[in-house]
Computed example of a mutant assay.
Amino acid sequence: MSDGRPRLFPSSRPAGHVPPIVRYSSRFDHAPERLAVLFMGLSAPDGNRAGRALADFLAAAGAAPDAPCHFDRARFTDAEGRANHMAALYWPDRDAFDRWAATPLIGEWRRGTRALAEDLAQWWEPVSVAPQRAETIAFAEYRRGLSACPFSRLEPMEETGYWGAARDRIPAAAFDPLEAEVPRLAPLDAPPRARGARLAVRPPAGLAVIRSGVSWAACGAEQRESYARNVKPKLDAGMDYLRRSPLDAGCPSLRQVVLADGDGRLLEEAYSLGHFLSLGHLEAWAKHHPTHLAIYHRAMAERKKYQAALELRTYNEIYVLEPGAPEFEYVNCDPATGLLPYFPARALPPAG
């Protein structure tokens, strides 16, 4: 995916490094100027109400022109105790997403007409970047998110198994430091008046959006028990730290979710959706904080123990936002939702 420019910043890959196991990254036969992903959700104290609304939204999304070519759905409970039903939707290019979002039926959802009528909270967080500012890592037989899209093919890569590998998988990092527009996170002086309102927040340039997932569905009894006893508690502790320490970590939003099927039943796989002020903030937590080091060393121990017989499956995708990224939109949300506590919001016209 390199554009041919010479490397200005050195790779972190150690000389002679051989990946411990074969992993794959997404490549694209078409040449999109911008990839497009929409992370959106609906929440309510009554999870069934939010689930029904999400099912109706996904039906409308699939029927509209330029429908997403892939999506999945998930559930989680937020810090306010509200049940959230969410979806991640993918398009091969930004133009297709923009045409889809502008159709009348999707526009009605986006304006929050149903959310306001039924007292649902709705968050809508589109991500669109040049492919050179994105990376994926996956197992060939376990494709999720961007790697699962029909326009994505997997190729083996060598940038895995060492500190800095994620940055090395982002082609733009060879000549762009991918720095934060906002170097330090600070709460707004006053929370926005968000309940009953439609608000838009422009995410800052350099914001790193990461979806990092794990599946234990294929694990036999021994490795399932090892995941539950040895891996998951450390993963949960790391995510809990990020949620509780956004200012220290530079992580304004962290959602830990469980995948669900088309009927809303939970599956044996999960992912975390995080926003960091920059790739550097994400790397600092990953390389230096005890909570991530505990995750990393436990994962390495599992890999060393089981090697080619490892049954646990993981993946991640990272997007580093550019200046002028699409706005995140929040309808009838708690003021602690997403980016609302930290970045100025502008009021959008009321639904109607």
Rank of each mutant, 00 (worst) to 15 (best):
S2N: 11
D3Y: 00
R13V: 04
A15H: 12
Y24A: 05
S25A: 14
S26M: 01
S26Y: 06
P32V: 01
A36G: 11
M40R: 06
P45L: 09
A50K: 09
A61K: 05
A61F: 05
G62V: 04
D66Q: 14
F76P: 05
A79M: 13
G81D: 04
R82W: 10
A83K: 11
N84I: 10
M86Q: 15
M86P: 04
D95A: 14
D95Q: 11
T103E: 13
T103W: 05
P104I: 01
L105M: 11
I106P: 13
R111E: 15
G112A: 01
G112P: 00
V127T: 07
S128M: 13
V129G: 04
R133T: 02
E135T: 09
F139W: 09
R144G: 00
C149P: 07
S152C: 11
R153C: 03
M157C: 12
E158N: 11
E158L: 11
E158W: 00
E158F: 03
E159C: 13
E159S: 08
E159N: 10
W163Q: 04
G164W: 01
G164I: 08
A165T: 09
D168C: 08
I170N: 03
A173R: 03
A174Y: 00
F175S: 14
E181Y: 05
V182P: 00
V182D: 02
P183S: 07
P183E: 09
R184L: 10
L188M: 12
P191A: 15
P192C: 04
A205K: 00
V209A: 04
V209P: 01
G213A: 13
V214C: 11
A217E: 15
R224E: 12
R224M: 07
P233E: 13
P246Y: 01
P246K: 03
D248E: 15
P252Q: 02
P252I: 04
Q256A: 14
V257A: 12
V258N: 13
V258C: 07
L259T: 12
D261G: 05
G262N: 12
L266T: 12
H275S: 06
S278E: 02
S278D: 04
L279G: 07
A286W: 05
T291N: 10
L293N: 08
H297K: 12
E302R: 10
R303Y: 02
R303F: 05
K305R: 15
K305H: 13
Y306V: 03
Y306D: 00
L310F: 11
E311H: 06
R313N: 07
I318A: 02
P326E: 04
V331F: 01
G338F: 05
L340K: 08
A345T: 12
R346Q: 12
L348Q: 06
P349I: 02
P349T: 01
